[in-house]
Nucleic acid binder design. Structure first.
Lengths: 253, 253
DNA sequence: TAAATAGTGTCTATAAGACATTATCTC
DNA sequence: GAGATAATGTCTTATAGACACTATTTA
């Protein structure tokens, strides 16, 4: 038994450290889940899609839709990319066709990886959290991917008191990410139909931020985006419940 | 063999899907590495700590310091938290004592999880990338954690032409994160000693952003932080190579 | 004395917040 | 006509960028 650092009383701490790291690589590995915070804005309210768990643990409790990263057999196949897994799971859990997701420019973005020990009672599971932004026209098409599952859109302002796993924390972090990015990116346009009025996009902002904006000031900011070419006018006008018909716009690029 | 969906020609796609997901959970799992982009600012230059790989794959190439997440035996122990793993690996790779890291308020933050298949030729490995900000007074204390490893501070503006794995991409993403957060958070104060002059903190900003700032305008912004109580005056003055002695400040909270 | 740095002040442009105003539609 | 909405305009305040200026130190 020559030169085994763990059996050598004079082995350096570094040698022991190396051996431990090496063995970890050889031995136990975590499962990796991809959980997705699927958000939309309908009727000026920010909503999130939750599924009721049919199995233990946390049976009958609400949780985020998710699935496991597919890893190949490790010999000739290493499995799917993490990005592809997120897209696959989003399609599976919403029942939407991948082509529909792409055509409607559904925004999908990685948020954070949650890795506390014992966050899943069964075995060690990391969750790579993602957030998806679904435009309202797709919401009626969403249906449970598996026959037994129950899925519901919850108001983000009125969530279940308890959720499975650490999904309440994950949800909070994802919403926070969207709330901040909406100020300095164009992700809000993933939450409206392909054409929209100024009021519609403003109400979407208000739903995401949970606040109201001055109409004139918002329009001024919007007009800057028009002159910058970020937004373009679309043909036609949209008639509301009152007031003059509103101009219709389209997001570019 | 009753009701096995994979053997039932009439099984729904959903049932088959469920079975596949379940089996993935039972079968192959990825390894999870924690790789850390360790940054500092010395002599008005942004630098990153790289290690030369002593083993295959990518032997003799430069790569980010990293290690594997420790997962327990899966029965009575699920191993260490992901956050704890990052801290442990940071301490191991810099040779710095955890107490020293805490006392000097070293900033450590998760950035992104890289999960392309085949990013490691040995087996499926996810990398949970982190970024650490080390103040300059700790730089002389950094030494290789393991006797065989060679570690060097590289200029971020002059990196090795090729790096192991996808570590070039990871490094870029981490630097981008720091460059943007430095504008709306206080992380820059993790890159200066406990007390500093206005010029010193300005040069740190310039090193991170890769740009120069107007002296007067920067000081105006700095003074707002003083009146807001974010920064406080420290006793004494600092004498430079020329010009009058500069006031010394300290970051609060 | 020359050069460099500390520290202050000024002018302008940009954008946000808080309004007010007019026009046009539905009920 | 009443109420609601579309669209525009005005005044104030906060901040950033460009730049000028004085004071104080070292070499």
């Amino acid at each position: 038994m020559p030169n085994r650092p763990d059996l050598d009383p004079n082995a350096s701490p570094e040698a022991l450290q190396f051996l431990r790291d090496y063995r970890e690589n050889q031995y136990a590995r975590p499962s990796v889940a991809v959980d997705i915070v699927i958000l939309t804005v309908v009727d000026t309210e920010l909503k999130v899609l939750l599924v009721r768990r049919a199995e233990h643990p946390f049976r009958d409790m609400w949780a985020l839709p998710g699935g496991f990263l597919r890893v190949g057999d490790m010999y000739d196949d290493q499995g799917e990319d993490l990005d592809d897994a997120a897209f696959r799971i989003l399609a599976a859990k919403t029942g939407l066709d991948p082509a529909v997701l792409r055509n409607n420019k559904v925004h999908l973005e990685q948020v954070y990886t949650f890795g506390k020990a014992n966050r899943d009672p069964r075995t060690r599971v990391l969750s790579v959290a993602h957030v998806a932004l679904v435009p309202p026209q797709l919401v009626p098409l969403v249906h449970p991917g598996s026959a037994s599952a129950e899925v519901t859109w919850f108001l983000v302002s009125d969530l279940p008191a308890v959720m499975g796993f650490d999904h309440g924390v994950i949800l909070e972090k994802a919403v926070e990410r969207v709330r901040s990015k909406v100020d300095y990116t164009n992700i809000a346009f993933s939450l409206v139909p392909l054409t929209f009025t100024v009021s519609e996009i403003r109400e979407t902002f208000e739903a995401v931020k949970g606040d109201t904006f001055d109409l004139g000031n918002f329009r001024r900011k919007f007009n800057r985006m028009v002159t910058d070419g970020i937004i373009g006018e679309a043909p036609g006008k949209r008639v509301g419940r009152s007031g003059p018909p509103a101009r219709v716009y389209r997001f570019r690029a």
